[in-house]
Each structure stands twice: as C-alpha cells, then as structure tokens.
Amino acid sequence: MKTNRYERMFERLQLKKEGAFIPFVVLGDPDIETSLAMVGTLVEGGADALELGIPFANAMADGPTIQRASFRALSGGVTPAHCWELCKRIRQNHPELPMGLLLYANLLIHRGVKRFYAEAAGVGVDSILVADIPIGAAGPFIEAAGEEGVLPVFVVPPNIEEEVLAEVARHGRGYTYVLGRSGVTGVERAMQAPLPQCFEALRVAGAAPAIVGFGISTPEHIRAVLAAGAAGAIAGSAVVALVERHLGDKAAMREALAAFVRQMKAATRL
C-alpha cells in the first residue's frame, strides 16, 4: 500500500527521535503574497507539516486571534479560489511537506462536498479537518474524502466518550487532532497536557498519530505533550499573533516567525 506524506513524516521523525511541530496560519492573512512568504519562512524554520485555515467569518471553534486573521484575509478579498492557488504554490515549493486544511462545513457544502474534496486533492492538499463536523455526522464526508484521496482528520476533545474515540480511531487518517483543553482556539488559556491514558487509548484503538492543539504557545507545552505520549503539537493562535503584531513590517514578521518556529521545533527533539 502506498504511504501518504504524514506516514512518511512520522517515520522520518521517529528515526530521529523527534516529535512533529505543525504551525497553523490562515491562508491569505494578511494578504496573499505575504501569506505565501510566511509559509516559506515557517517551513525553512523547521515546520514538519502545515495546518492551513480557509478564512471563514463564522468560525465558531476559533478564539479572537484567529477570527481577526480571517477578517483580515476576507476584507482583503481572499476567496476559496485564492486559497486553492496558494495551496498549489505551497505544494510546488514543498513537494513532500504534509499539508492539511482546517475549515468550516459551509464552505464544503456550498461548493458541493465531493467537488470540494476533489479540488483540494487537485491542489496538493493531504488532509482536511472540518471543525463543525463531528465524527457522528461525518459519514458522507469520510466517503467523499476517501473517493477523492483526501485524508479526513478528526478531533478528540477531553470529554470524548469511549465509543466516539473508537470511531475517530477507525475513520481518522493522517493524524488525530487531540485538544489540549476545552473551549476555542487561543493562547488566552494554556493547554493542559492530556493524560498519558488518552494517548494509550488512541494507540490501542489503532488511531493515526496524536497531535495536540489548542493553547500551545511555548516550548514547555511541546515538551509536556510529547512526554505524555503525543506525536507532536500544533500552534495556531501563537503563530497568527506574531503575524498580527508585525503587520506593518514584513522583515520583522519573518524574523519573529523564524525565531518562534526554530524554538518550538527545538523542543520536539527528545
């Protein structure tokens, strides 16, 4: 069976005894060209994979930082078509980098679920996490993703029921998104490293490798989740906040992102 980019990434990291560090940014924030340049900076700085958001004005799982990023992109006129173009260029620049999308259901529904997955696969997207499609409602999405060759990623929140976790393990591909805490994205409240039992339960159930997100902003957070048994960590709001802080000065933005990703990546080396 052909392996996917996530599997190859986890294999490489395992040989080097490293966890994965995955930064998240909103596509087109603050504008299309800066967004592309900053993704380049993140990858050069050591990002093992990318998690990318398609701007959406009704982001009910996102806190204020990522909401503002969406608004910056949307008020700059960024559309899903622009996002496809960006993905295509990121894929050209980084042929082997795992690239996931995090987005909201209405964007898929509007385009047509099957067509959306086909377009994503066509521009080199590896995985899609739909923030407002829980596993219990995901049947048609899993099917369409499978047909079009996109890996469906699902979320494991701290309050998950055992049989729901089993479903996530059965259907999730690429990686499993384990929430560092309840609530919405943001660094206002720090993550709490999920208990080792959670990662053990996922392993036993045969789930894709666990990556922790929500409230991750420091190297200590990364070390804590890796020590608990995660395969890596995602930082979103912390990255987006750096973009926001340096909106007027792209050189400073690049420098801040490069320093942040280097520091976070260094913490993944066990």
């Binding site: 407002d132 829980p134 729901v164 309840s182």
Partner: peptide, 25 residues
Amino acid sequence: AEVLNIKEGAFGPFGGMFVPEILVP
C-alpha cells in the same frame, strides 16, 4: 440539498447536529 444522512434531529434532508466534537456530549 446535499445527502448528509442525518440521523438525529432530521427534518427531511435538513437538521442534524453539526458542531465541534466537544459540544456533542
């Protein structure tokens, strides 16, 4: 309408529970 195979809270093809996993329980 998309065929979303809504199991709980369906009104014809409409309805359902499309929320982040954390709100499902």
